[in-house]
Amino acid sequence: MVTRRFVLSSLALAAAAVALPLALPAMTAAPIRPKLLIFDVNETLLDLGKLQQAVNQEFKSETAFKQWFALLLQYSLVDTVTGNYHNFGQIGDAALDMLAQALGQPARPAGRKKELLTLITELPPHPDVIPGLTTLQKAGFRLVTLTNSPDATVQKQMAYAGLTGFFEQLLSIDSLKRYKPHPDTYRTTCERLKVAPAQTMLVAAHGWDTAGAQRAGLQAAFIARPGQQTYPLAPAPTLTGPTLPDIARQLLG
């Protein structure tokens, strides 16, 4: 029995030794050059500083915007997980009420909340965005957006920022009624544009977004905007860089 076990163990080790070198190339292989680049909008392309300043001033707190934006994301996911749906503007409005309550302040009138929320359609692009998009467009990449904001909002955002002409389509999760990072949001976009997930790359400045895209089978590029981090329990993004032109240089090799 000892001899037989030794022989079986030796055979298993030999098989592993043969298999290991064959597995290594797959682990170190370069990513497939994507045919389609899907861009997140808020914070990735657009600078939220104007909105951040307004919310912080309104609630007299340097952390008010971060609290509000976290509530906005949290309760969009609550809607998705519970099979419910309110658009991003509705959740943003409710999150302002929740923020006021958390800070021990009175709820703002509907008109004032609308003024604050309208600022999301009046945001400039980050300084690196137009140079980066220009490089990618000239290189022949297909470019689209995919945002949690409603269709009407992203249309206004891109027009105000002067970015509409860079994109083949301005897409939102609004028709699907599930928020990113639900895998259906990314897969449905790939199906709509007839590109395989493995040949598609999400470009985003949020670790939760890149994690969701990769779990759905896409590649992901993380723009490391100040204050943003990747999720340590998710796969590392395919590409990481401080600016969009840096991501573009990596894509072009």
Rank of each mutant, 00 (worst) to 15 (best):
S10G: 15
A14G: 15
A19E: 13
A26V: 05
M27T: 07
M27D: 05
M27N: 05
D40R: 13
D40K: 14
V41K: 11
L45Y: 02
L46Q: 12
L51D: 01
A54D: 01
N56T: 05
E62N: 11
K66R: 11
Q67N: 08
W68Y: 06
F69L: 08
F69V: 07
L72G: 08
L73G: 11
D79S: 13
T80S: 10
T82V: 06
T82P: 02
N87D: 14
N87Y: 02
F88L: 14
G89K: 10
A95H: 11
L99M: 04
A100R: 08
G111T: 08
R112T: 04
R112S: 05
K113V: 02
K113A: 02
L116P: 13
L119M: 06
E122C: 04
P124I: 00
H126P: 03
I130Y: 08
G132N: 12
Q137W: 00
A139P: 04
A139S: 10
F141C: 13
L143D: 10
T145R: 08
L146R: 13
L146G: 12
M158G: 03
Y160L: 13
A161K: 14
G162R: 12
E168W: 08
Q169W: 01
L170S: 03
L171Y: 07
S172E: 04
D184K: 09
Y186A: 13
Y186T: 13
L193K: 04
V195G: 06
Q199C: 03
A204Y: 08
W208A: 12
D209F: 10
T210M: 00
G212M: 12
A213G: 08
G217K: 08
L218N: 09
L218P: 06
Q219S: 12
P226G: 05
Y231E: 07
P232N: 06
L233F: 12
P237E: 03
P237Q: 04
T240R: 11
G241H: 07
T243K: 07
D246A: 15
A248E: 01
L252Q: 14
G253R: 10
